[in-house]
Design a protein around this nucleic acid. Structure first.
Ligand SMILES: [Zn+2]
Ligand SMILES: [Zn+2]
Ligand SMILES: [Zn+2]
Ligand SMILES: [Zn+2]
Lengths: 146, 146
DNA sequence: ATGACACACGTTATAGCATAACGCAATTGA
DNA sequence: TCAATTGCGTTATGCTATAACGTGTGTCAT
């Protein structure tokens, strides 16, 4: 009874908990910490952090959610579904960057091919095998900037 | 008696605690968490996390130490002291990137002008005012890679 | 000198983020 | 049917970071 529920749409089937977490993140206009998500889902039966973390682990694996390392928080993926450097797993997007407004909390997700290549070249030159790349710009968005 | 001690060399004068923390980080060949630093300094009178965090805050401000967001850990700056995009504060280096080996823990700090500009251009186009940029590549270093 | 101020420090307590370890239930596939 | 896998719920624990309080010490203007 806890198995993922298949849908007629695309994307991997989500379990109930995964759907709940994903919905909360999707509706939010700012990153959320795992504990904030937990609080939003108390009414839906969530009682412990692990319920959230387990769902997040899967959503991250599916590429439907991103973790913001500099914030210890999570956002729903904002990709237009299909991007240039599809790289195999899940949603299929390569390295992505985030611009995080420290005033209003808004996050812009974007991909810059050039940056990606440039870092790839450095890695190749140093014989470094990249697994996951984090790019986060903290600052003030257009609406909040002086 | 707790004021910074002036030295004949360059760089800002460090207090005793700041020096101790910086020395530990400098001697380490891998990033250290604040609590690991604390443990290393018990013999020197450190008893509480705040002693470490306060020293780290200053060292970060001076640009002598960097925080690795994806690791919640800290490293001594590995710059050759003077770099291209000096940007005012402290040591005077612009945005820097880190390649972190997930096997041996070794960290390479580098600066890529092109990447820096590219992200700057994106920000300018979006009217986003960057304050601090994080770039971290996790993977396997040349020595550890298959 | 004396007071105001800034700053480093030490201590205790608390807040916030993340995982370990256990056992149960349902699904899958041999 | 049996074993392997996956998701789930619960309790306890560990790691990371800061709040709030008070102390001592230099600096500098009065
Ligand atoms: Zn995305
Ligand atoms: Zn904003
Ligand atoms: Zn540096
Ligand atoms: Zn290595």
């Amino acid at each position: 009874m806890n198995a993922p529920v298949s849908t007629p749409t695309s994307a991997p089937a989500l379990t109930k908990n995964q759907s709940l977490v994903f919905d909360v993140l999707t509706r939010s206009d700012a990153p959320m910490s795992a504990y904030t998500i937990l609080d939003r889902l108390r009414d839906h039966g969530f009682r412990a952090p692990l319920q959230v973390y387990r769902a997040l682990d899967k959503l991250l694996e599916f590429g439907m959610v991103h973790r913001l390392e500099s914030l210890n928080a999570f956002v729903a993926c904002a990709h237009p579904e299909s991007e240039c450097c599809g790289q195999g797993h899940g949603h299929g997007h390569g390295t992505v960057a985030f611009a995080i407004c420290e005033s209003c909390g808004h996050v812009s997700e974007f991909h810059d091919h050039e940056v990606d290549h440039r870092l790839g070249d450095w890695a190749k030159a140093k014989n470094f095998k990249p697994a996951k790349t984090t790019i986060e710009i903290r600052g003030l968005c257009g609406a909040c900037g002086a």
